[in-house]
Simulated assay, not measured.
Amino acid sequence: MSNLPSKFKNIQTPHSGYHWDGSSRRFFEGWYYRITLPLHGQSFAFMYSIEDPRGGQPYSGGTAQILGPQDSYLCRTFPDVNKFWAHRENLAFGHWGRTDLQIKPEYLEPQVFDSRVEEGYQATASLNQGYLHDPGSSSRCFWEYEIKPLYGWGNSEELQKSTAGMLSFLPVFEPGWQILMARGLATGWIDWNGERYEFKDAPAYSEKNWGGAFPQKWFWINCNSFQGESDLALTAGGGKRGVLWWMESVAMIGIHYRGNFYEFVPWNSQVSWNIEPWGSWKMQARNSQFEVELIGTANNPGTYVRTPTEKGMAFCCRDTTHGNLRLQLRELLGGNVEKNGKQRSRIILEAQSSLCGLEVGGGPWDEVWKVITH
């Protein structure tokens, strides 16, 4: 892997490398790369996954999915796990489909990949490249863009944080979740069914999850393209996840804004949420210094995408990249409380977007999911 790009390692987050330990237990690892094109009012979300990479098991194989313009959808499977590769220390992975190469799969220089791999993808911290074609619908997508990371997960000048805290270094929480790049700048092109999108310094984002157990129910909010705020990125989410032999409901909010990181997580904050089966995402969080409120809404039906489950990839996740979001961040002030009993505060940030990623997954989603913490 000596030909792997070494730049940007200073903001590499924990868990950037591949987690599979070589065993035959049920296992998946998935990656999510998103770019937002404000001038077009569109987003592209690339979702890559590998299941049971040892091979020879009922659900062994890889999948690549794209959520494209107007929440359109493209998916291809890559059943040969031997054509998947991933780096253990760094963010770098790929899966080859048709190719005339007879070598073991590895990172290729972009021009070599382009000329020798007929279908497949490769992705690193600084590159996302590939080609998918669905013969059933004749849909296809080519893409190649470079990424300059700006924020990983944490304050810019410090060591980057694990999204799930120190405990995520132990196989206690399943699945694991790591935001790899809260905000970056993407430059390149995407050809979606013959329509070519070229972009320079477009907002980019990436995250991953992995494990041997599968999330039962979750929600997610992500946006790094806000009106009038060029240096702002938000990711929030929550879910029911396995901890040893029980399930717990947890949620978090993370904001990168003008070089600062505002983190609201269960061990330093009270985080509450009210999520409808579709259409409304409301979250509030408060710690000793700050409080935040998020209101996300979706006026469109969204699109179902596949996610790993106990029984392989299944349509159990509903997404849109055209959600509306309002965000308010306040600093708590000492001294007397106001007449309504609330602590005095001042607004640090108010922002809104119409290009927010909103998601609900798992289930059941037959009623509002409401959790209030004090």
Rank of each mutant, 00 (worst) to 15 (best):
L4R: 07
K7Q: 15
F8I: 03
Q12G: 07
Q12N: 06
S23W: 03
S24R: 07
R25Q: 10
R26P: 00
E29F: 03
Y33H: 12
I35S: 01
P38T: 02
G41T: 05
Q42H: 06
Y48H: 13
D52F: 10
D52M: 12
P53S: 05
P53I: 10
G61A: 06
Q65L: 04
G68W: 00
P69A: 01
Q70N: 14
Y73L: 01
C75W: 13
R76G: 00
T77G: 12
D80V: 11
V81A: 01
N82P: 00
F84T: 08
R98N: 14
D100Q: 10
I103L: 14
P105C: 11
E106N: 12
L108F: 04
E109C: 07
Q111H: 13
V112E: 13
D114R: 12
S115G: 14
S115T: 15
E118V: 14
T124R: 01
S126C: 06
Q129W: 05
G130P: 03
L132Q: 07
R140N: 13
C141F: 06
W143M: 07
E146F: 12
K148R: 10
P149D: 04
L150S: 08
G152K: 03
G154A: 07
G154L: 03
S156I: 15
E158L: 13
L159V: 15
K161H: 08
S168F: 08
S168I: 07
P171E: 00
F173L: 15
W177M: 13
A182S: 15
G184P: 05
G188W: 04
G188H: 02
D191S: 06
E195V: 10
E195N: 08
E198F: 03
K200A: 14
K200Q: 14
P203N: 00
A204W: 05
A204V: 01
Y205M: 02
Y205V: 04
N209S: 12
P215T: 13
K217L: 11
K217I: 00
F219Y: 08
W220N: 13
Q227G: 04
E229R: 04
D231N: 02
G242N: 15
W246S: 13
M247S: 14
S249N: 14
A251C: 09
A251S: 14
I255A: 04
H256L: 05
F264Y: 05
V265P: 02
I275D: 05
G279M: 02
S280W: 13
S288I: 08
Q289Y: 09
F290K: 10
T297D: 01
T297V: 11
A298T: 03
N300T: 03
P301E: 06
Y304M: 12
R306A: 07
T309P: 06
T321G: 07
T321V: 11
T321H: 05
N324V: 00
R330F: 03
L333E: 09
G334C: 01
N336G: 12
N336P: 09
R346M: 00
A351K: 04
S354T: 12
S354G: 10
E359T: 00
G363C: 00
P364F: 09
P364A: 08
E367I: 11
V368A: 13
T373D: 12
H374S: 14
